[in-house]
């Protein structure tokens, strides 16, 4: 391949530019602690965004993931707190909590997917609805306040976020593993090929004997489980969940997917690009905090400009290569 594929390289170039910028602005930027922080923080959105890549590539959309994360975190905390007196403070309780989060994610993803494929409702509408439902449920479960994990369990559970192998903490390792598995599945597995085919033209997929509904449903279930996994890593960080947990995560995840070069209309998935997109978004935040470049009031504007710019640049290159 002599031609440069800007869809793949564009986000990487942007990422490298940001890293150079960050290093120039503040020497602390490249310190291992800062790198660990940024990567670990990216893990929640990152896990979700990898799942979102599959959903979007198959021509779908999921707006409910942020609320779903808050809801699952609440469920997991309630489950663990309820079991703590009988089971005691040990890993069994925490494993059950993790199971609740992941199985809950599976069920929530199945609910979204079933409404979309079986009841044939637009993904935007279905997930807009479940977004409101999950958000209300967590607020209700927390009684408007905050659900906090039993302090004994917290201490035990804490290393899942903060611990790891050296500076590679568990969230970073998890994110890396899921990203590699996601990239592999998109490129080399039948599932990934089917996802791309459906997003590209679902009629062609149906005529090619692909079970379109099943594959679509699977993308939502996969995303739900990854949201559950993100929750497993999120809960030990602050040990709490509230109505304000995971607000706007869905938009960050979608933005990361699009920055990464996946087409919003579906048909072309780039898991590596998504990883780049997630890191780009995290780095922007980090650099703005580290550098005092502009008034903090303008942080949102800078992010917005970069998101739009990233996508516009891809378009330009793409249009040029068409000619």
């Amino acid at each position: 391949m002599k031609k440069i594929d800007f869809h793949t390289l564009g986000p990487l170039i942007a990422l490298i530019a940001l890293i150079v910028l960050g290093t120039l602005l503040n020497s602390a930027f490249l310190a291992p602690a800062n790198i660990t922080n940024v990567l670990a923080r990216s893990a929640f959105i990152g896990l979700i965004a990898v799942g979102m890549t599959f959903v979007i590539t198959a021509g779908g959309l999921d707006l409910s993931v942020g609320s779903m994360a808050a809801f699952l975190a609440g469920l997991a905390i309630i489950a663990m707190n309820a079991l703590a007196p009988s089971l005691g403070v040990h890993w069994g309780t925490i494993l059950i909590g993790m199971g609740v989060a992941i199985l809950g994610g599976l069920a929530a993803g199945y609910l979204n997917g079933a409404l979309i494929t079986k009841a044939r409702i637009e993904p935007f509408i279905v997930t807009l609805g479940t977004m409101g439902i999950f958000r209300s449920l967590i607020t209700w479960l927390a009684d408007g306040g905050t659900l906090s994990l039993d302090s004994g369990l917290r201490t035990l559970y804490r290393p899942v976020y903060y611990g790891g192998i050296g500076w590679l903490t568990w969230p970073i390792l998890c994110f890396a593993a899921v990203a590699i598995a996601g990239e592999w599945s998109m490129r080399h597995s039948r599932f990934g090929r089917h996802v791309e085919a459906i997003g590209s033209n679902d009629r062609v997929a149906r005529y090619s004997a692909i079970d379109v509904n099943r594959v679509r449903l699977m993308t939502y279930v996969l995303l739900g489980m990854l949201v559950g996994l993100a929750v497993v890593l999120y809960v030990p960080r602050l040990g709490s969940a509230s109505g304000s947990t995971g607000v706007l995560w869905e938009l960050e995840a979608i933005a990361a997917v699009i920055i990464g070069g996946t087409a919003l209309k579906g048909g072309r998935g780039r898991v590596w690009g998504t990883v780049m997109g997630v890191l780009i978004l995290s780095l922007i935040d980090n650099i703005l905090n580290l550098a005092n470049l502009v008034s903090p009031y303008l942080n949102g504007a800078i992010q917005g400009v970069i998101i739009v710019l990233a996508v516009v640049l891809q378009r330009e290159k793409h249009a040029a290569s068409e000619r």
Binding site: N26, A28, F29, A31, A33, N34, N37, R41, R237, L238, S240, S242, S244, T245, V247, D285, N286, N289, L290
Partner: peptide
């Protein structure tokens, strides 16, 4: 006024 946002900001303060 958000735990997660405050966590991120504080991490960056500590690096800086």
């Amino acid at each position: 006024w958000n735990r997660d946002d405050a966590f991120n900001v504080m991490q960056d303060y500590l690096s800086k």
